[in-house]
Structures are given as C-alpha cells and as structure tokens.
Design a protein around this nucleic acid. Structure first.
Lengths: 331, 331
DNA sequence: GATACAAATGTAAACGATTTCATGAAACAC
DNA sequence: GTGTTTCATGAAATCGTTTACATTTGTATC
C-alpha cells in the first residue's frame, strides 16, 4: 500500500501539500495539484483510515459502533440494515457488536469500541440503567439508542410506541371474543418488554377482562423461551384461549409448540405476535402481528447519529415511530 | 482516555517499559512491573487499538472484515453469528460489509477494508471471478471464502456440497411421484446457484424426467424474485407440480405467491427449499428443506481465518460440510 | 582488577496521516 | 526602493503505540 509519503516523493512535493490536495483545505497551485493527482492515480494511493483516525481524534474517523442484544432476532437485523444503508451512504463503516444479551460481553465490546476510537455509537442497551452506555454518553461520545432509552440521561432515542402497539393487539383479541388472553413477555429488564406488558394489562382492564397472573410468563426473548413458555401456558388446567407474544422469536417458538401439540389456530388457541416479518403471510396460518418499522428505525437512528457527530450540541431527540396491527388469520 | 504516556509518567518509568509490561515481551523488574500495573488500574488505561494497528502492520490489529452479499438472508446472518462467536473469543472484532449484491458497493467496501488495515477477511465474493477479492488474496491478506470459491486461486473455502444437496431434494420429489419439477434458481453468476441447478438437472436425468426449460427460471436470490418467479411458473399453461427453490428468501417469496393464489401445498404444488430455518416447522405446511449448517460454516471460517493469520503459509483448505434433507410436510 | 555479559531501563525512530507555523516569492502600494 | 499582502509550499510536531538500539548497573569470569 502506497502511503502519502510515496505520493509526495513521486510528485516532488511535501506531504503537507498532498494532504492539502486531498482535503482541499487551502489553495494549491493548479499545476502541482494535477501532478499530485497523477501520482495518486499511478500509485493507486488510498489514504489510511487508521492513521487518519489516530491523528485527528474527534475528526471524521468514519467508524461507527453498533451494539445489539441479539443478532438472531430478525428485528435487529432489519435495524442493522437500515443503519448500514445510511452509514454506507455517508462513507462510514460499522463495527457490529452482538452481545447476545450477555452483560459481560456487552462491557467487553464497549471497551473495545472505545479503544477503536469510534465516532459514534448506536446501541440497544441491556437495560435502561446500563452504566457503561451511560458513561459513554457522559464522556461525550455521540450515542443514539434504539428500541430502548436510558434512565436519567438525555439521549437520542428511536423506538416505537410499545405500549400502544401491545394495547392494539390485545384489544383486538378481546374484541374478537377471547376471554383468557395469555402473554409471553420478554426479559423484564428490557424497557420495551415492560411497556408491552403494560399495554397488555391496560387492554385487559379496559375490556373488563380479569388479569390472571398464571397467564403472564416471562422469558429471555429467545426462540427457546417461546417454545418452553408456550408449553407451560398450554399445559395449564385452564390454558389461555389466545396468546400475545412479546417479540419475533418468542412468537416463532410459540408457534413451534402449538404445532407440535397439533392445536389448531385460531380455534384452539389464537395468537398475535409483536414484530412482523415479511413472510408472516406464509406462516400457518398467516400471522396477525404488530409491525414495527425496523428498517426505518435503523435509518432514523443512523441519520440522527451522523447529525449528532456533526453537531454534538444539538438537543436530544426522542423519535417515536408508529407500530401497526397487521390483521391476518391467526385470531 | 489515558494514554501509555500518562501511565509511564504516573509510574515514573518510560513508555517502553510500560509497553514491555503490557506485552510481557522482555524481562522487567517485578517491582516496577507492579508499579506500572497499579498505574494502569488507577488510570483505567486501555491501549488504543488504532495506534497499535498503525504501528505494527501485520501484527495483531484484532480486526476482521466480513463481506456478505445480502444481510437479509437468514443464511448469512447465521454464518455471521458463527464468525462473530469465534472472533469474539479470540479478541477480534468484525467490520460487517453487506454489499447487497451490488458489485460497486462491494468494491467500495474492499477499498475501505484495505484502508482499515484489517488482519483478515471472510468473504462470500460476488462471483468466482471476483477480481477485487482475488487481488486481496494475492496481496497476501489472509482470506477465507464462504459459500463460494475463487477461480484459479488457492484459497481457504468453507461451503456445503450444493450439488449433492440439490440432488437429494429433487430426487426426493421425483421418487415421491412428482413429474413436472420446476426450479427457481438464484443468480447464475453465483457458483452455488449453478451447482444447485446442476444437482437439479442431474436428479431429473437420473429419474428419467424430461428437462423442460420453461420450468427453470433465474432470479437474483431475493424474496421479491421468489414472489415473482413463482408467479411466472404457476401461470404457465402447464405449471410445475413441484418447486425446488434455490435459497431461503426465494422459498419464502414463493410461499407468499402460493398462498396468495390459495393453492394447497402439496396437493396443488409441492415445494422443497434450499436452506432450512429453525421455524420451518411453523410454516404452512411445515417446510421440507435442505439444511445447510450455516452457523457452523461461520465458525469454521472464523477458525480457519485466525489460523491463517497466525500461520500465513499453511496450505489452503477446502472444507465441505454436509447438507441434510429435512423432510416435513410440504411434499 | 579488568573484561565480559546479562538484566533493566531509557531514547528515539517509525507507522501515516493532519495541522500549525515558518518561509520564500511574487504582487502591490506608497 | 522599502514595506505589506497574498499565494504556494515546506518543516516539524502530533496522535499512541512498538521496537531497534543505547545506556546503566550489577555480577560472574579469568
């Protein structure tokens, strides 16, 4: 790899001049300018982003960190896609850190990101009291949260109205005549899980349905937890006649259990899931789901982050996107 | 962020000694050693990976590039997971480059990766004649290919036996009595697509089924292409009575079309897909599919890459994992 | 007691860029 | 002709490491 020095030598100028041409920072004679450009082409010179990053901290290192809790979850993959699209368009690359809901792994990744001198971070923190992420914000690193906020700290957030989305789903079930609506919730440490649970409870209350604690179970937001908790609910003496599942993976896991038990949806048990997938229509039966605009969440987060990198003093924005109930055949 | 200089000052030694302690590269007095460790702790010093990478090229910068064609494809997400697991265990982080099957974007990303001074690359190149990836191999960068190889270049590859997997699927359909087996193939520029097509043709031949070109269509391996090409095949005067779909997304797209047309699987049309998903069982009906061990592919690729970084002269390995036909209800 | 060697540490150059400051030449005003 | 700008460029410091080389001290060898 040719360095700036090689280019300078070849063009017969100093590296300072080369740098000036590259950043057209100040006036340089047109003739030398062309000489330098020629040399750059001939040597196929490419500036080293590493050197640039080391030298000008706080300057544009063009590197972002993305911290997500579970890359198996299609929701985060879509968010990631949105981020990547925006990042790429702005000449940023992203380091993907999947911490698999493991706080130790999360901490390790945050250390590394700091050490990599990233320009900004998009994170779905492990909890809203996530000390490590909070500290990074306080240290002045541009941060945008997705799906979850941070307690007591003003930070950009992009999310959906989880409470309203959950309410819409459960309300729909109630109005459709289901009386024993169960809920498989995600990790209670995750704010969005709690908000969805709140929506669930509120919908029960407003429809005068009793809340029965045995029908509310908590898992860790994985496929496996969906399988097992559905098993648990459906084995009850009086099992729910409808399920509201807290996310993508839980839904798919629950479906697995329902099918294994040869139960008919929606006659034996109805189901509405939080998170839509573009193949929800091909499920058996087509799944009714609360759609989060995941890709768009990623895009918005990416845009906010790049904005904040350029203007660190902009006041924090909390962006709430709308969820939408996609009614299909599963209830 | 504290630097090595700060540590040195605090411990009353020179930065060289600090560096020696950190890399325990040569003997340093136990007493000063402890002093330094204490200073490191007090200052919460963390070495800068950027500076390290700049200084010692070829040394361990602990940064890998991953170049994948389509992050929407669950197959690659699983591969990515496998890579990430291994990378994380070895203190590497990965820059994820999703080029969305766009060669220009791929080229741009490769430039950037070079400029980021990555230690190694795991790539699913756009084609087996991918000039840019080839050049990186020739330049001595450790590279492992997944899912696809490179023509005329000896390079580590991890993939499955695509031909055999496809054969097994189509052979199964034939033996089950289907006579008009259609195939929605992926991009013919992708080696794995061609191998799957070869397996398809071979299975037809060995079962004495005529090959009808109108039942073989090519798309770009996306969900959308699955929707549209299934539409095309099923609109033929004599439509296929069974479909073999070339990948994950094509399968899901084809299912969408089949359901939209209210066709019954497998009575109206049977389907076997390449690529399994852990929720295949929840599809309508449970999907028969050729399973690729995607997560394991990622792990193996990660291991090979780290090996190669440590020993660049090791002879290239081509690792072929087994695919498996998961028979369920869709045929 | 001079020489040699090992251990412990420091000095300074390098990696590849950016950026401040200095310098020289040309242009202009008086 | 001297002084002041302006334009074009170069020299050198800097970012935070690693590492080749130099230096100091203590100890073993003859």
């Amino acid at each position: 790899m040719a360095s700036m020095n090689d280019v300078a030598r070849r063009a017969g100028v100093s590296i300072a001049t080369v740098s000036r041409v590259l950043n057209n920072s100040s006036s340089v004679n047109e003739e030398t300018r062309l000489k330098i450009l020629k040399a750059i082409k001939e040597l196929k010179y490419q500036p080293s982003r590493v050197a640039k990053r080391l030298r000008s901290k706080g300057g544009p290192g063009n590197l972002l960190g993305v911290l997500i809790p579970d890359i198996q979850n299609p929701f985060y993959v879509d968010v990631l896609r949105g981020i990547e699209d925006i990042a790429y368009k702005n000449n940023y690359v992203i380091i993907v850190c999947n911490f698999s809901q493991d706080e130790k792994k999360e901490a390790m990744y945050l250390d590394i990101l700091e050490s990599e001198a990233i320009d900004g971070l998009i994170a779905a923190p492990a909890s809203e009291d996530d000390v490590r992420v909070k500290k990074m914000v306080q240290n002045g690193l541009p941060v945008v949260c997705v799906d979850r906020g941070l307690n007591g700290i003003d930070v950009d957030v992009v999310w959906v109205n989880n409470d309203a989305g959950a309410f819409a789903a459960v309300d729909y079930l109630a109005k459709a005549g289901y009386k024993r609506i169960g809920h498989i919730a995600g990790l209670p440490t995750i704010p969005s899980s709690r908000l969805r649970e709140a929506g669930y409870r509120r919908a029960l209350a407003e429809n005068n349905l009793p809340f029965d604690p045995q029908w509310l179970v908590y898992g860790n937001s994985t496929y496996k937890s969906g399988v097992e908790l559905a098993e648990k609910l459906l084995s009850l003496p009086t099992p729910p006649d409808a399920l509201f599942t807290g996310n993508n993976l839980i839904t798919l896991g629950a479906l697995e259990t329902i099918h294994k038990r040869k139960l008919h949806i929606p006659n034996d048990v109805a189901i509405i899931g939080f998170d839509d997938m573009n193949w929800s229509n091909s499920l058996n039966p087509p799944l009714t789901a609360v759609r989060q605009p995941a890709y768009e969440i990623g895009q918005r987060a990416g845009e906010l982050l790049i904005q904040r990198i350029r203007d660190p003093k902009r006041a924090p924005i909390q962006m709430t996107l709308n969820s939408e109930l996609m009614v299909r055949g599963s209830c």
